[in-house]
């Protein structure tokens, strides 16, 4: 199938873009820039400036919240179709996590400037973003509750 259609379907599966129609997504596809890293590299480190978000085409990455970039305490592992790095695009703060490449990654990236332009053009995107962020928040809450439960009941 045409790469354009593959990309559109990929975007359709990303919660950020799920509410857009395929004819709207086709305008977004050309704005995505290809990116790639080999296994063992880091996509970015905690504290780096946030300027773009990424959608994984292949490979796997691990997310580390620890201040030490060498740490391998992954709070989440992401794979095909997942996206990361979107928080910084919205709050304009430095990266809150380090992303390690676990398996060689092919990805698509979207810059902050383009995302802001798209938000104006397709307001539905904002709702998709809220849905995705709310999903992340839920996951974080669950993880926090679980870790607190483990701390209270070490056995």
């Amino acid at each position: 199938m045409q790469p354009l259609f593959d990309r559109i379907l990929l975007l359709k599966r990303v919660p950020f873009f799920a509410l857009l129609r395929t004819d709207q997504l086709r305008h977004i596809v050309p704005m995505l820039e290809p990116a790639g890293w080999a296994s063992g590299e880091r996509v970015f480190e905690k504290g780096d400036p946030s300027d773009r978000m990424y959608i994984l085409l292949s490979g796997r990455v691990g997310i580390v919240l620890h201040d030490d970039p060498e740490s391998t305490e992954y709070v989440a592992q992401l794979g095909h179709g997942d996206c990361f790095g979107e928080m910084g695009l919205l709050d304009d703060l430095p990266r809150s996590a380090t992303v390690h490449v676990l398996e060689t990654v092919e990805a698509l990236s979207l810059s902050r400037v383009r995302l802001h332009g798209m938000l104006q053009a397709y307001p539905e995107l904002g709702i998709g973003m809220l849905a995705a962020l709310s999903g992340r928040l839920r996951e974080a809450n669950d993880a926090r509750i679980k870790s607190r439960h483990l701390a209270d009941n070490p056995k």
Binding site: M1, F5, D23
Partner: peptide, 16 residues
Amino acid sequence: ARQADEAGFLRLVLNE
């Protein structure tokens, strides 16, 4: 396989 993917895509667009 390729045509099945295409059929799926056309179905999506048709429903939209």
